[in-house]
């Protein structure tokens, strides 16, 4: 209900003034998201990626990387993540929905930081990701849906993504999802890879490649507001 001071104004008062006052009152009652403390970020160790993500992957949230076509560098990002995870003395879980990860690109020492879950269908990958996020032992869980068709990815119920967001939020887990098309409605941040690499890219070092990745931020949300949105959306979805 509006306060009496706003309701009892003289009818001849300009309506624009009322709106200004109403906005001021709402701003006072509900500070905008921009004024809230920034969501903590976890650096990926990939400079271009961190820059696009405003400092790193948001903690306790989902991040979606959309890679519309192969050849844009999604697998290169995964390999670089394994490498940087090894350097940071952490561990990483890769849920590989298409069983396509190639260990040949990394040394055995680097691979020792990786838990690889080789799935053969999206349903297995979804269950595995859910388990790993709930387990909360590994700081980063990567779900790779790049070898799934768009139809398979779109067939994943949207409620699953909201549920996964809640799990990540409750456990403080960082989840990164690679998809061929944007489907993760509950992602705190969605970035899109935009550059196709050509044959000369095969002669570049991985560091040079990750530095030349082109990506744009499609959507970025701050977590405190988004948490409520996710709850409402989850509730509406039943």
């Amino acid at each position: 209900m509006l306060p009496q001071s706003l309701l009892s104004r003289h009818p001849e008062e300009a309506p624009g003034q009322k709106i200004i006052e109403l906005r001021a009152l709402l701003a006072q009652k509900f500070p905008p998201a921009a004024e809230q403390p920034a969501q903590p970020r976890r650096s990926t160790g990939i400079e271009a990626f961190d820059r696009c993500l405003d400092g790193g992957l948001p903690e306790a949230a989902l991040t979606e990387v959309v890679c519309p076509r192969h050849g844009m560098g999604s697998q290169t990002i995964i390999q670089a993540l394994v490498e940087s995870t090894y350097v940071a003395r952490k561990h990483l879980a890769l849920v590989d929905a298409g069983d396509s990860f190639d260990p040949d690109g990394l040394s055995n020492e680097q691979l020792s930081a990786l838990l690889w879950v080789r799935c053969h269908e999206p349903e297995q990958a979804i269950k595995a990701t859910d388990l790993l996020c709930r387990d909360n032992n590994l700081p980063l869980v990567v779900l790779d849906l790049m070898m799934c068709t768009e139809r398979q990815v779109r067939a994943i119920a949207s409620t699953y993504w909201y549920r996964l967001q809640r799990v990540a939020e409750n456990n403080g887990c960082v989840a990164l999802v690679f998809t061929p098309t944007p489907v993760v409605g509950s992602a705190a941040c969605t970035v899109r890879l935009t550059r196709m690499f050509g044959l000369p890219a095969l002669d570049l070092l991985r560091d040079q490649l990750t530095a030349s990745l082109h990506m744009e931020t499609v959507r970025a949300r701050s977590s405190p507001c988004f948490g409520h949105q996710a709850q409402i959306a989850s509730f509406m979805a039943g």
């Binding site: 050849g71 560098g73 396509s100 190639d102 690109g105 990394l106 890219a201 095969l202």
Partner: peptide, 11 residues
Amino acid sequence: GILPLGLGLRR
């Protein structure tokens, strides 16, 4: 095959 060269391969 194991140098950190080039794009990653999806097998």
